[in-house]
Amino acid sequence: MTTHQGSCHCGRVTFEVDGEIDSALSCNCSICQRKGSLLWFVPRTSLRLSTPESDLASYTFNKHVIQHRFCPTCGIHPYGEGKAPNGDAMAAVNIRCIEGIDLAAVPVHHFDGRAK
């Protein structure tokens, strides 16, 4: 299993995440479209913050089931938190915030979040 390093733009929020990035999701909901995130879903236990959680800001909207986490200094969104359909805690990591990723090599699946 590979451990990836990531951060926001200014470096205030840093993290490690374990797993193999085999695909990403591009969602067209009102927030994801504006952020331009490419999301990789992992169990929340695979994501380890190097930054105190209190250093992050959080935003929810619509059904308030996803915590969109972002850096209050630079505004970059490194990940979100929610639950999988089976109830397990999940993280949606923005792979654009992971170091050394060849984004062109990652297959991207498109999700119609506007319709949900």
Rank of each mutant, 00 (worst) to 15 (best):
Pro52Cys: 11
Ile95Glu: 08
Lys35Pro: 01
His68Met: 06
Ala92Pro: 01
Ser23Ala: 12
Gly113Phe: 04
Leu39Ile: 11
Ile21Lys: 00
Pro85Gly: 09
Asn28His: 11
Gly75Tyr: 05
Val93Arg: 00
Thr45Tyr: 01
Ala105Tyr: 04
Cys10Leu: 11
Ala104Tyr: 05
Gly11Ala: 12
Leu39Asp: 05
Glu99Ile: 08
Cys74Glu: 03
Ile95Pro: 05
His4Thr: 04
Lys63Asn: 03
Asp18Leu: 10
Pro107Phe: 09
Gly113Cys: 09
Leu49Asn: 02
Ala104Ser: 14
Cys8Asn: 09
Ser30Arg: 12
Ser58Thr: 05
Phe111Tyr: 15
Gly82Asn: 15
Glu16Val: 06
Val17Lys: 02
Ile31Thr: 08
His77Arg: 14
Phe70Asn: 02
Cys10Pro: 12
Glu99Asn: 09
Arg12Pro: 09
Asn62Leu: 02
His109Thr: 15
Ile21Leu: 07
Gly87Asn: 08
Arg12Tyr: 05
Ile66Gln: 03
Ala92Tyr: 13
Gln5Glu: 14
Pro107Asp: 10
Gln33Ala: 10
Ser58Trp: 01
Phe41His: 12
Val42Thr: 05
Ala115Met: 07
Gly100Gln: 12
Ala91Asn: 03
Ser58Pro: 00
Gly36Lys: 09
Gly36Ser: 04
Ile101Trp: 09
Glu81Gly: 14
Gly19Thr: 02
Pro85Val: 05
Cys32Arg: 10
Ala24His: 06
Ser23Tyr: 13
Gly87Pro: 10
Thr3Gln: 13
Ile101Arg: 06
Asp88Gln: 15
Ala89Arg: 01
Asp18Lys: 13
His77Pro: 04
Cys32Tyr: 08
Arg114Met: 11
Glu99Pro: 00
Asn28Tyr: 07
Ser58Val: 03
Ala91His: 07
Leu25Arg: 10
Tyr79Pro: 00
Trp40Lys: 01
Cys32Thr: 01
Ala24Phe: 08
Asp18His: 12
Ser58Lys: 02
Ser54Val: 04
Leu25Asp: 06
